[in-house]
Design a protein around this nucleic acid. Structure first.
Lengths: 216, 216
DNA sequence: CGCTGACACTCTACTTCGGAGTATCTTCCG
DNA sequence: CGGAAGATACTCCGAAGTAGAGTGTCAGCG
């Protein structure tokens, strides 16, 4: 038996992780990845539909046809080999996080626009973090009223929640910091016109050094 | 003159933003994007080489051949239309940030591996944040001893630095929080075996609610 | 009852992007 | 001088995203 040509990726393992929890139809996998994982592993719908097929090709999952009325759908389940492969993957080194923050690209060239542009950008980033926090607060409420969907793995979910809460807090904190300074700026085009530049520098320096002070 | 087929992307505008600062060879653009922007807008080298050509096709930049000995290279400069297009782009709404954090995928399925796997993952994420903070501390030292490369735009750079310092702090904080809990776990396979699960929940809840308390 | 809109459910073709690899010239250092 | 590192740029192929397509189900409304 030859190795299938398509390589398994982090996305493959994320889907495999879901299959280790229960059987899912392809649509359910798409919905679950969109609802529960897109803040830390965003993937296009088409890509998610591809993954379980790859897992089947690798022998890590099995598919079966199911029906809703005359409507056909495919349900995927994990194989023992799949469980083993997932456990093995968890023991491999992790890739570094990658952040794509267009708002930061814009802030990094703020001098080419206006103060209003910068403030609008910052407020959009802030709104994003608040809205996402709102979604997770609702999930927390749901857990407390109806119980978690997978009670046996709540501790793992809390680890993710703890990260996201801190990540969104960092965005909100940053946005407020920028706004507190930029709102006083008349002219953004030249650093010479920024009267509180030293305060900006001092904040950054103190925080970077605080991070380094936590090195082991 | 027909509109070129390839659409301009955030990467296009990031490169255009650099061109607004000075002329750059393609190699210099690749180096600069890798050094100064990859923590907020990571892009493959091959993709960056493609961008200035697109800008030229759109009339936002011009290219000219240059030489080092017999070695040829291409130097790109911004056009007035390019400057205007960049200014216009800065006034458009920004896309939400996107984070791909494999460590979080792993943490989110931690119950399928061992405590050691989780701790290793968390420590790798922590090391990443410390190392990146170290790079920015060195850049800060360089700014203080040799002066910034673009003194007129230091305030914009500080805005990016302020975000990254907070982002890395969030990662370090999260890693220490996870480690403080996970190091006491014997069995990670079932939430029933997690004696400090309530502390995990309380941390997440308090932080999510603190974020919401900052809503406007 | 029939129609419509939203949802359930899935896929494909094409384009863009990333990573790995390639190649050649230039400079520096032992 | 030779080798390593840097300068300089590109190609190829697989991964991933976008846009679009299609079909069944169900609830609500005229």
């Amino acid at each position: 038996m030859s190795t299938p040509a398509q390589q398994l990726t982090t996305t493959s393992y994320a889907v495999l992780g879901l299959l280790c929890l229960r059987d899912w139809s392809a649509y359910e996998l798409v919905t679950e990845m969109g609802r529960g994982w897109s803040d830390i592993w965003p993937r296009a719908v088409s890509g998610i539909y591809r993954e379980p097929k790859k897992l089947v090709a690798h022998g890590l999952a099995k598919d079966r046809a199911a029906r809703t009325g005359e409507r056909s759908r495919t349900v995927y389940s994990v194989t023992p080999e799949g469980r083993e492969a997932f456990r093995t993957w968890l023991a491999t080194p992790t890739h570094a996080p990658q952040l794509e923050a267009e708002a930061l690209v814009r802030a990094g060239f703020a001098e080419h626009g206006g103060v209003d542009d910068l403030l609008a950008t910052v407020r959009q980033a802030r709104s994003f973090a608040i809205e996402r926090s709102r979604v997770y607060a609702a999930i927390g409420d749901e857990y407390r009223t109806e119980g978690p969907r997978f009670p046996e793995r709540v501790h793992s979910i809390m680890l993710v929640g703890g990260f996201l809460a801190r990540y969104f807090a960092a965005i909100i904190d940053w946005a407020d910091w920028v706004e507190s300074h930029a709102a006083t700026w008349d002219d953004i085009g030249d650093a010479d016109a920024i009267s509180d530049l030293d305060a900006l520098r001092a904040d950054v320096r103190a925080r970077v050094e605080a991070n380094l002070a936590r090195a082991r």
